[in-house]
């Protein structure tokens, strides 16, 4: 945990990428880089955005911290509380739900012994439900980091969970760490 933004330090690779992204917008429009920066920050700092991390992002973009908070709280991908190393996002919208998404959530809750929105005691898994991920033809499905796990059955869920159980890579983020290294 950071006390304040002065303790928040992006890796060299991330800093370089951030500068590259800021240059994509016209001078004075650097605020546009906010969403990509929040993704990178979430990948760098444990899968969630603490206030010091958001303050750091505000400093980099030369905007007010409130401008970062109001955006981070609007979008569903940003976690404002600590999460497990592996966030499981199960699609709960109509088409997936027609094909059994609800049973998948139930099964995961039982298997991980947590409720939707919670994190396992060992800090490995957080279970989230999310809205349609544009994969309705391969329903039911869930996303972990960059990966779509589709055509889910209980057996398939078992396999996926086993795979991540011994995950030692640290946080599995949407913006993969490989892609931060330029």
């Amino acid at each position: 945990m950071y006390k304040d933004k002065s303790e928040v330090v992006f890796s060299d690779d991330a800093s370089a990428l951030i500068q590259k992204i800021i240059r994509r917008y016209p001078d004075g429009r650097q605020k546009s880089a906010l969403l990509p920066l929040l993704h990178i920050a979430q990948a760098e700092f444990g899968g969630w955005l603490s206030a010091p991390v958001m303050d750091k992002v505000a400093e980099i973009l030369n905007i007010q911290p409130i401008e970062v908070y109001e955006v981070a709280s609007f979008y569903s991908m940003f976690n404002l509380k600590p999460v497990g190393r592996c966030v499981i996002e199960v699609c709960r919208t109509g088409p997936c739900w027609l094909l059994g998404a609800e049973d998948i959530v139930k099964y995961l809750e039982k298997k991980l012994n947590i409720k939707e929105g919670q994190t396992t005691a060992d800090g490995v898994f957080t279970l989230k439900t999310v809205e349609c991920l544009a994969s309705c033809g391969t329903a039911p499905m869930m996303q972990i980091g960059q990966t779509y796990h589709e055509h889910l059955t209980c057996e398939k869920v078992d396999e996926v969970i086993d795979h991540y159980k011994n995950n030692t890579e640290g946080t599995i983020s949407h913006w993969s760490k490989d892609k931060i290294k330029a």
Binding site: R24, R29, K31, S32, A33, L34, L35, P36, L38, H39, L61, I63, E67, E70, V71, F74, Y75, S76, M77, F78, V130, E131
Partner: peptide, 25 residues
């Protein structure tokens, strides 16, 4: 390319532009 942050409303074109400007959608 510019990534969103998870919000259906950002598919609406003016919300999308707000979002692209780094604001709420």
């Amino acid at each position: 390319v510019h990534p969103g942050g998870g919000a259906y409303i950002c598919g609406e074109e003016t919300a999308l532009l707000e979002s692209l400007e780094g604001k709420r959608g």
